[in-house]
Every structure is written in structure tokens, then in C-alpha cells.
Design a protein around this nucleic acid. Structure first.
Lengths: 116, 116
DNA sequence: ATAGAGTTTAAGTATCTGCTTAAATACACT
DNA sequence: AGTGTATTTAAGCAGATACTTAAACTCTAT
């Protein structure tokens, strides 16, 4: 894609590419998921759930050394993006990773990391 | 990982996991890269460079309908994370994707999307 | 040396984010 | 019904972000 403008060919290409990037729902969703899971705390939560299958709010708070409301807010965000779900056992709520396609890619990355 | 605390076993597990998440350079780098490329504008820039190999600042600005300084700042950020590089041709600077491992994963995702 | 094109940097602003503490809610147990 | 545990929600604050416009810089062509 050339910068020099007078060439008609490049003007047509610019117009084509502009149209291509006018509506990008797939990129927007990908951006959303990368942003929500890319946060340092939330990525650690996902990594922890990947390795230990499930955990409750106060244990995650203990491990990551954040307050329980902070963890609860992060979990809420991950849940609203369908990356995690939860089950209740008496008073305790356990969170776990869902089968979301994004999680499959992410856990492949986690597997390849070996150590955190 | 259990929430019920009095069990000694769970205390030991918590302590083990806490140590495991004390220093996480790989997760921190992954978080960084996901955050920088997850931004809607920067993800579009990366997608555009993936599909068209290279582009200059003013063409990217035209396509994404942002100002040239805004694009320049985004490109600077991507460059500082080694996700893109640049070459100069007279007065024009062309940006392109690097062979960074993160880009390999990202372009696999782009390829799988088909349409944006 | 000058002018113009292309790009980067500086400064400002509005908005957003992530944490905290406090309060409220949900639930189990008695 | 009351109490305690676990969790969520509300409110506030400090810091960060992404865009803009204006100014400065880099380079080419003359």
C-alpha cells in the first residue's frame, strides 16, 4: 500500500482498505477479549484456574495479594466475557475456565510457557 | 484448591501457589503484549499490516480515520514492544510486522478469522 | 538555504481503569 | 430469627490512557 497519492491505483486501494476496516466485529471481539484477559491480575487469575481447575475468591485474593472485592470485580469482568463460570458449594463459590475458543488459544499459550 | 482453611493440606497448597505466582516474568510479558496489541486501534493496525505487509503513517491514518499523530503514537508503542519495525523510502517510513513469537500466534488468529 | 512533505513530540483534556474501604447482600448453620 | 462467613456492590481516588491540536523535527528536492 503506497503512500504516494497521485497514483490512481493507490487511491483505489485506500478506498478498498478503508471499506474493509469500516466494520470489524471479529477484530472488535478479539480486541475486547485480549484487553480483558491481558490485564496483569486477570491473566494471573486465568493462569491459576488453568493450572488448578478451580478456586474461590478468597483463595485467589490470598495468592495474588489483592483484596477480595478487587478479585470479585475481576472475576465479574471475566465472567461477563464468558471466559469463566462458577459453581456454588454451600457458601463458597468456585470459579473455573469455560470452553470458550479464546480460552483454548490462551491455554495453549499457558501450556507452552512451562513456568510463569 | 479448597477454600476451607482449617485443613493443613490446603494451607500448604495455598503457600505453594502463592510462591508460584510471586514472580511471573513470562505472564508479565504476555500480559504486556496482550494489552498493547489488544487496543482496538492497534489491533487494527496489526491486522492491516498482516494483510498488506506494510503501510505508512498517513495511509493508516486515512484507513482508520484517526489523526496522524495518534497513529504515530500507536506505531511507537508497537515498535517499542518489537511487534513492528520500519524502513524508510525517501521521506516515507513504511511499517511492517516483525517475526516476534507473539506475532506468529496473532497472525494465526488473523488467518482463522477470514473477515474482520 | 529554503520550501514542502512526512513524521514525531509536547501539551492538554476527557475518559477510563483498578485498586481501596465501607456497606450491602446471599447463604448456611443454629 | 439471629449470627457468621463468603461474596458482591457502591463510592472514591490516584493513575493511566488515547485522542486532539500545535509545534518541532527529519528528509528530499530545488
Amino acid at each position: 500500500m503506497e503512500c504516494v497519492r497521485p497514483k490512481d491505483g493507490s487511491k483505489l486501494l485506500i478506498r478498498k482498505v478503508k471499506k474493509e476496516f469500516e466494520f470489524t466485529p471479529n477484530l472488535d471481539e478479539l480486541s475486547d477479549l485480549m484487553e480483558v484477559s491481558g490485564n496483569p491480575s486477570r491473566l494471573k487469575i486465568l493462569a491459576l484456574l488453568y493450572r488448578y481447575q478451580e478456586a474461590c475468591v478468597c483463595d485467589i485474593a490470598d495468592v495474588l495479594e489483592l483484596t477480595v472485592p478487587a478479585i470479585s470485580q475481576h472475576l465479574g469482568k471475566l465472567k461477563s466475557h464468558s471466559l469463566i463460570d462458577s459453581r456454588r458449594e454451600a457458601q463458597t463459590i468456585y470459579y473455573f475456565l469455560t470452553n470458550h475458543p479464546f480460552n483454548k488459544r490462551l491455554t495453549t499459550v499457558f501450556a507452552g510457557l512451562g513456568e510463569w
